[in-house]
């Protein structure tokens, strides 16, 4: 399993430069917002965490449809499916999700404090936004695995994947933004939404790979 993780990370770094694509898209989304809403610093600081979350959500959808497609195109998927006695298929999917998250989504989390500065988010808010992203974005990848597995046989499945999984990611977005807001706006609490966000990630870490494994099993032809 470690071998699979290392292989996918290596592939992601070497071939796709997916990390850079996502980070640049994230930068583009966040950088144009201040131009759009105008130079009202208080307003920017208030919507900053939300914009960071929306940007990270959209950026992490990029490339998600390729999660299994590369393996399908070169025949590796058959071999991964074929060794399901040795490695539980859901676990294989889980490891692939982790590798995808490390390569494509973790850089977004790392650059988010920098982008938060564009939005005049106070330091505590930056910390809150980054930590909620760190905890919440794996859920998006695990949900995305289901969409990617369903659309694995479709050559242009990217849009379909986004449409399938976007509604499911809404709770993650809601609680992620609520927690980041709670850290700065005084009456709102931070811990409850943060804990619910963690629960969502743990929940989808189990449900997502299991559902994706089912979808992959019936997709083979």
């Amino acid at each position: 399993m470690l071998a699979l993780y290392l292989r996918d990370v290596k592939l992601g770094l070497r071939a796709g430069s997916g990390a850079l694509t996502g980070a640049l898209f994230f930068l583009a989304v966040v950088a144009v917002i201040p131009f759009g809403v105008g130079p009202d610093l208080n307003l920017l600081a208030r919507i900053g965490p939300a914009i960071l979350w929306i940007g990270a959500l959209l950026a992490s959808l990029l490339g998600l449809d390729r999660l299994f497609q590369g393996d399908r195109e070169d025949g590796s998927l058959d071999l991964l499916l074929g060794s399901r006695d040795r490695h539980m298929l859901a676990l294989t999917v889980f490891v692939k999700c982790l590798a995808h998250w490390t390569v494509s989504v973790l850089p977004l989390v790392l650059v988010s404090p920098l982008l938060g500065l564009f939005m005049n988010v106070p330091p505590l808010g930056l910390l809150a936004a980054s930590s909620t992203l760190l905890v919440g974005t794996p859920a998006i990848t695990f949900i995305g695995a289901v969409g990617a597995a369903l659309a694995v046989a479709l050559p242009r499945g990217g849009l379909l994947v986004s449409v399938i999984i976007l509604p499911l990611t809404v709770p993650v977005l809601i609680f992620g933004v609520a927690a980041s807001r709670g850290a700065v706006a005084d009456p709102d609490p931070f811990l409850p939404p943060f804990l619910i966000l963690s629960a969502l990630t743990l929940f989808f870490a189990v449900i997502g790979p299991a559902a994706a494994a089912l979808a992959l099993r019936s997709s083979s032809d």
Partner: peptide, 17 residues
């Protein structure tokens, strides 16, 4: 399934590695 090697039309290798 556990006992077989399946060698299909596709080679199952990554071009970048």
């Amino acid at each position: 399934q556990a006992a077989c090697h399946y060698l299909g039309h596709l080679n199952g290798m990554k071009t970048a590695l």
